[in-house]
């Protein structure tokens, strides 16, 4: 494998000796991990491999990249994937307006009249627009955290392009030649699993599935992220959300929704009963059918959590 040595590059975490120590680091940043996720991130740093995180929306796949970057004092470079994304949005593009200006300037000064030389002058680094992938492997200093978000939204062809970058750590620009990586970024890929990613890409990655947290861990997360919420309210909300997740909903609530809901209840006076829960349901459920189903089941839900 070519490219810089992964371990030496991740200096900020060079002293982190175990998944537990890494979990403590992330904890200090306000991100609660469990054994599995801490191990996955630890291995990604140590083995220098991309980490593919899958899981339902709202379990914190994207957030872990931000927490890691903050804790490591590393820049975070995010590539949001969407259908039709291609090299000009992910790798590089040329600054066409400035290229035209360049041609005009040359013409005006009469310096260059040979079309070949004129064309060669166009494809200078100055006119190169670095998109996230090129940016991530050619920065200087601290290796960045490269977040490739919602890869399942991109087309299959894009995966092939990504695979090339992630395995060779080079990007070839026809007009300029091959650009080699100066740093090896920490790469985190996320997928909501709307489709299966290509096996060749998965083979390069560590794989981890993030589950919804259990009620006790979610309680800790809520208390951490929304300090204004009283423990009693947070406990009730965490238990309610655990029940909601076992219901056949169109859109299962994520952690952010749990936090919002706890905040909403607190804003209304901090009394968690069936009527307050029903009035604030919009904070946690984002689909009309779900609102109807859960709203009518609210008394039994409250009974189930002992309120």
């Amino acid at each position: 494998m070519s490219g810089p040595d992964p371990v030496a590059d991740v200096l900020q975490f060079g002293s982190v000796a175990s998944p537990d120590a890494l979990a403590a680091e992330l904890d200090a940043d306000g991100y609660l991990t469990d054994d599995g996720l801490a191990t996955a991130v630890f291995l990604a740093l140590r083995l220098g491999r991309p980490l593919l995180l899958e899981g339902e929306a709202g379990v914190g796949k994207t957030e872990i990249a931000y927490a890691l970057a903050r804790r490591a004092n590393a820049p975070l470079i995010r590539l949001q994937c969407y259908e039709g994304i291609d090299a000009s949005q992910a790798l590089y593009d040329w600054d066409h307006a400035r290229q035209l200006l360049h041609l005009r300037a040359r013409e005006a000064s009469g310096a260059e009249s040979d079309p070949e030389a004129l064309e060669a002058g166009l494809y200078d680094e100055r006119y190169l627009r670095r998109r996230p992938l090129l940016e991530a492997i050619t920065t200087h200093g601290v290796p960045p955290v490269l977040l490739i978000d919602e890869l399942d939204r991109a087309d299959e062809e894009f995966e092939a392009l990504l695979l090339e970058v992630l395995s060779n750590w080079t990007i070839s620009i026809p007009e300029l030649g091959t650009v080699r990586a100066t740093v090896r970024p920490v790469v985190i890929l996320t997928s909501n699993r709307t489709r299966e990613l290509h096996d060749a890409l998965k083979r390069r990655c560590l794989y981890h599935w993030i589950d919804h947290p259990d009620a006790s861990r979610e309680l800790e997360i809520v208390l951490r992220r929304a300090p204004a919420v009283r423990r009693e309210v947070a406990e009730g909300i965490a238990a309610l959300v655990a029940h909601l997740r076992s219901m056949p909903l169109l859109k299962t609530p994520g952690i952010a929704e749990t936090i919002e809901w706890a905040r909403a209840i607190e804003e209304l006076g901090g009394q968690l009963d069936a009527s307050a829960a029903r009035r604030t349901l919009g904070a946690v459920l984002k689909h009309r059918d779900d609102l109807g189903a859960v709203g009518s089941a609210m008394p039994s839900l409250m009974a189930a959590i002992g309120r």
Binding site: S88, D93, W94, H96, A97, Q99, L100, L103, R104, R106, E107, S113, P115, L118, E119, L122
Partner: peptide, 16 residues
């Protein structure tokens, strides 16, 4: 298509 246009205009000394 600016990328292709710029490339072609180089042949005509920057004229589009």
């Amino acid at each position: 298509d600016l990328r292709a246009t710029v490339r072609r205009s180089a042949r005509f000394e920057g004229d589009l």
